[in-house]
């Protein structure tokens, strides 16, 4: 697709991520033997990765375009609460489980569009606009839920999303579908091209005739939508809506995207990298839990990995620049 030096860069980066993942698995197998490599454990690992994964796909677009969305965790929480209120569940009993799904998606999308409108048309810095949404969405979720956990009792919903398909949980398949769709959207469509252009050089994109404000609105809408999808998955997995759902999720998501190789400054994004980033963090958590290692140690390790990945990224970038001079 691209020139020699540009091709070897991404290939090398992907190789490094795969290597890291394989190493983690080897550590898992060596330290816990059959417990890590069992079908049950891998299924659990993937199911845990799926929610973060879906939201990370949306975040990949926002970050590729040079933005950031800090509100995805709160918006996911709000969507789980809204989609599991008694009235929503009554409606779902009457009309079908899709009412819950539609509510969650609508809440996510709406919150995302508010973010997008503030950033694109209100010219509020993305960091501040989505930080405000982070606080507001969490607050609204608490108000609606009254700080209670709302159990989901719509059986058709649970049956559909807790089912296993071809040996894997439904929510893992959702992650697979969203990731594949995200890859095509970023790499094969005009939407993806605009995203990269806006992130790479917004002024050049604008002067070339790209409607960057409208596109920015769509991007945050997309991130909100993936938070809505994530909410459906969280509802299915935990069978409950709660205002605490998705707390600090934004940190895991941003970490996975950046470790995957998407530039925080914008202009380059990789869905494959994001998926690998999500898997690396989930596997890490899993291996630590299996070894009964304190969660604080786990947090420290995460921090080290993030810093290491960013350092590597910069090393790659410097090397590429040197080759192209």
């Amino acid at each position: 697709m691209r020139g020699r030096s540009a091709l070897s860069g991404p290939a090398l980066r992907m190789g490094g991520l795969v290597l890291a993942l394989v190493l983690l698995c080897v550590v898992g197998i060596v330290t816990t033997g059959g417990r890590f490599a069992s079908v049950g454990n891998i299924t659990t690992l993937l199911a845990l990765a799926a929610t973060t994964g879906v939201v990370s796909i949306g975040m990949t677009f926002v970050i590729t375009a040079g933005g950031i969305d800090l509100s995805v965790g709160s918006v996911l929480g709000l969507a789980t609460v809204w989609a599991s209120t008694l009235s929503t569940q009554y409606l779902a009993e009457d009309y079908g489980w899709w009412v819950i799904v539609l509510t969650a998606l609508a809440v996510g999308l709406a919150a995302g569009l508010v973010n997008g409108a503030l950033v694109a048309y209100g010219k509020v810095p993305a960091f501040m606009a989505t930080l405000a949404m982070l606080a507001a969405a969490r607050g609204l979720a608490e108000l609606i839920a009254g700080r209670q956990t709302q159990l989901v009792e719509v059986d058709p919903f649970l049956d559909t999303f807790r089912a296993d398909v071809l040996g894997l949980p439904m929510i893992v398949w959702i992650f697979v579908v969203v990731a594949v769709a995200g890859w095509f959207l970023l790499n094969r469509t005009t939407f993806g091209r605009r995203t990269v252009a806006v992130g790479g050089n917004p002024e050049a994109a604008r002067l070339a005739g790209i409607k960057i404000k409208r596109h920015t609105l769509y991007l945050y809408g997309l991130a909100g939508l993936t938070a809505g999808i994530g909410a459906v998955m969280a509802l299915a997995r935990t069978t409950a809506g709660s205002s605490t759902n998705g707390t600090l999720l934004e940190l895991d998501v941003i970490a996975a995207v950046v470790v995957g190789g998407t530039l925080l400054a914008g202009g380059r994004g990789t869905i494959t990298g994001t998926v690998l980033g999500v898997l690396i963090f989930s596997t890490l958590t899993n291996v630590f839990i299996l070894n009964n290692i304190d969660s604080s140690v786990q947090a420290i390790t995460k921090g080290v990995i993030i810093v290491g990945a960013v350092l590597l990224q910069q090393w790659f970038a410097a090397r590429e620049k040197a080759t192209s001079t």
């Binding site: 005009t190 252009a197 790479g200 050089n201 050049a204 994109a205 070339a208 005739g209 202009g267």
Partner: peptide
């Protein structure tokens, strides 16, 4: 310019949507 993008994408920055089939590049 998009300095870190290939030359052809810089050349088609104003017209890639016209080359696309629907949204498909």
């Amino acid at each position: 310019l998009l300095l870190d993008e290939p030359v052809y994408r810089n050349i088609t920055l104003s017209s890639f949507a016209r080359f696309a089939h629907g949204s498909w590049l």
